[in-house]
C-alpha cells in the first residue's frame, strides 16, 4: 500500500532539508473533539464556581458566565497554542503541533488569526468548510491555517536510535574476509541498504512464508553481486546473512 502520509520539506539556508509530517483531517478532528470537551468542561466548571456569585447577585453571576463562556471558547486555542508552542490539550494527546508553514517559530499573530478564522471554517455546521478545505489542500490546511500561514504537523515521539537492538553482538562470518566486505560496502547503495534494514526491522510483521521468500530474494541478489567463499555462508539462513550484510555496512570497523 502506498504511503499516504503528507510531508512538507523545508530547506534551511545551510542547504539541509528536513521534512515535517502533516497531520491528516481525522487526527485533527479527534484533537478538536478533545478540545471541545475541554472547553465544555471549563465552561461547566466556571458555571459551578459562579453559582457562589449568583447566590449573592443572580444577574451578576449570569452576566459573568455569559462573558466567561465567550472568553473561554475564543481564548482557549489562542492561550494554549501560545503557551504550549502550537499545542492544545487535544493536540498534545494526539501528538500534533501547529507550526509555521516555513518551519519558523510560530508568531502570536498567526495563532490569533488561525483561531479567529474557526468561525468561517465551522460554517455552515460541523466544520464543513474547514473539513473540505483540509481535504483539498496539499498540506491539509483549513482556511484559518491558510490565512495564518500555518500547518498542523504530527510530532511522533522520537528516541535516539538503539543500535544494540539493531546489531546483536554475534559472530559475523563475512567479516573474516575484509576485502570482500569492502567490496560489498562499495557495491551497495544507501537506498538498497535502507531496504534491507527496513525488511529486517519489520520481519516479525511478515507472514512466515512471505518472510522466507522475501529474504531469500534479497539474499540471492546480494550473493550474486559479491561472492563470498562457501564456508562463510555455511549454516546461516538468508535472514542471518542479510543481518551480517547490514552489520558489515553500518559497523565496518568492529
Amino acid at each position: 500500500m502506498a504511503n499516504r502520509t503528507k510531508t512538507l520539506a523545508v530547506r534551511t539556508p545551510e542547504g539541509i532539508e528536513f521534512s515535517l509530517q502533516i497531520a491528516g483531517p481525522v487526527c485533527r478532528l479527534l484533537a478538536y473533539l478533545i478540545d471541545a470537551s475541554a472547553i465544555w468542561s471549563a465552561v461547566m466548571l466556571t458555571g459551578n464556581i459562579l453559582k457562589i456569585v449568583s447566590a449573592i447577585n443572580g444577574q451578576l453571576g449570569m452576566a459573568m458566565l455569559v462573558f466567561a463562556a465567550f472568553v473561554i471558547s475564543v481564548g482557549y486555542g489562542i492561550v494554549f497554542e501560545w503557551f504550549w508552542r502550537g499545542q492544545t490539550i487535544g493536540k498534545k494527546v494526539l501528538r500534533l503541533r501547529v507550526m509555521d508553514s516555513q518551519g519558523l517559530r510560530l508568531q502570536f499573530s498567526q495563532i490569533v488569526v488561525r483561531n479567529l478564522l474557526r468561525v468561517v471554517d465551522s460554517l455552515p455546521l460541523l466544520y464543513l468548510v474547514g473539513g473540505v478545505t483540509c481535504l483539498l489542500s496539499p498540506y491539509s490546511q483549513r482556511l484559518g491555517d491558510i490565512a495564518a500561514n500555518t500547518i498542523v504537523v504530527r510530532n511522533p515521539e522520537i528516541f535516539e536510535p538503539n543500535l544494540e537492538k539493531l546489531f546483536p553482538d554475534k559472530f559475523n562470518s563475512l567479516k573474516e574476509y575484509p576485502h570482500l566486505a569492502a567490496r560489498l560496502r562499495g557495491s551497495i547503495s544507501p537506498e538498497e541498504a535502507f531496504l534491507i534494514l527496513r525488511a529486517l526491522q519489520r520481519r516479525n510483521e511478515l507472514e512466515p512464508t512471505a518472510r522466507v521468500s522475501l529474504f531469500n530474494e534479497l539474499a540471492e541478489q546480494l550473493k550474486s553481486a559479491v561472492k563470498f567463499p562457501q564456508e562463510a555462508l555455511e549454516g546461516i539462513s538468508d535472514e542471518r546473512y542479510l543481518g551480517n550484510v547490514i552489520d558489515v555496512i553500518f559497523r565496518p570497523r568492529i
Binding site: 528536513f18 519558523l104 522520537i158
Partner: peptide
C-alpha cells in the same frame, strides 16, 4: 542523508534540526 539510510536516526536528527531551525530563524 548523503551516506546512510538509517530511518530512526534520520527522523531523530530531522526533528532536532526542525525544532532548532524555528528558534534560530525566529522573527
Amino acid at each position: 542523508q548523503s551516506f546512510a539510510c538509517e530511518p530512526e536516526l534520520k527522523l531523530f536528527l530531522e526533528s532536532l534540526v526542525a525544532r532548532a531551525f524555528g528558534e534560530i530563524h525566529d522573527t
